[in-house]
Design a protein around this nucleic acid. Structure first.
Lengths: 145, 145
DNA sequence: ACGTTATAGTTTCACTTGAAACCATTTGCA
DNA sequence: TGCAAATGGTTTCAAGTGAAACTATAACGT
């Protein structure tokens, strides 16, 4: 049954596969950094990054902005609040909602991790020249739609 | 403590993040297909794809070619052998090694899934024009190195 | 006002996962 | 030859995950 009637998939040329390898390699390299230094999971870091840019949003807003599901966000927040990196209050007009923001300790971590993350980004994409980077941005834009 | 001394990370413009969103969206859309139709996980499908192209390799070889860790491969293979989709024998000259290949049932599934996967690939990247696709290939090539 | 429906968030349950420990076999080398 | 180190593969254990159920609050329609 091993003959010319089959047409095996060439995984190593399959675009979605290659994309996922590249993407995971880069994400994991960055995550390894703040995981070892601050014990932050990728989920937690993403939540913190959102709270840095958009203080006082709710957990739902965080989930929406990070494209993560609400269970993951809920658990990340539980850990972040417990470790004193995020302050959680209840919304005045809607007691279901939480109002989240980084604590001073959270900001301190953010201010260390963010530049590192940007440095990693620069480093990885340094293998591309200016023209390639422009195309990459445009391509990602299109694929996201 | 919320003032101009901070420089929040703009997640939505952060390249590694955008890359992972796009990549995961595409991979999951494809995986949803063969998961619902054949109960295959992504790991299992990748193992099958490798065995289609490279019959009689060992589990270790599969792990190397799929960039997955050996535990994941071991478990995927256990399920695939149990469900009769992969045949496993022991290597004659080295009894630690397995010799793996798709069964007839495995080939039948492969021959249905592979064209579907290719169709998905075509569909997703159809939003790109020829020039953009060329650049994407070149960029992925460089980033993989 | 009142009951139904929707929403924010948490918890539970069953399952997946990776790291480390483990077993069996083979290799390297004294 | 024989014994330590390396290798292929599986199992164990602790942690993480998503789906569905659940709690509490708010919004809506009558």
């Amino acid at each position: 049954m091993a003959d010319s009637t089959h047409h095996p998939l060439a995984l190593e040329q399959f675009l979605p596969y290659r994309l996922s390898i590249v993407s995971n390699t880069i994400s994991q390299a960055i995550a390894a950094d703040y995981e070892s230094r601050f014990g932050l999971t990728m989920t937690e870091w993403r939540v913190m990054a959102v709270l840095a840019r958009f203080p006082d949003v709710s957990a739902r807003d965080v989930a929406e902005r990070t494209a993560m599901d609400k269970v993951a966000v809920s658990r990340a927040l539980a850990r972040l609040v417990k470790s004193g990196r995020v302050n959680r209050e209840t919304h005045d007009d809607d007691k279901r909602r939480s109002v989240l923001r980084l604590s001073d300790a959270g900001w301190a971590i953010h201010d260390e991790v963010a530049p590192q993350a940007r440095a990693h980004e620069t480093e990885f994409f340094a293998v591309l020249d200016a023209e390639e980077r422009t195309w990459l941005l445009r391509i990602l834009e299109k694929l996201s739609a």
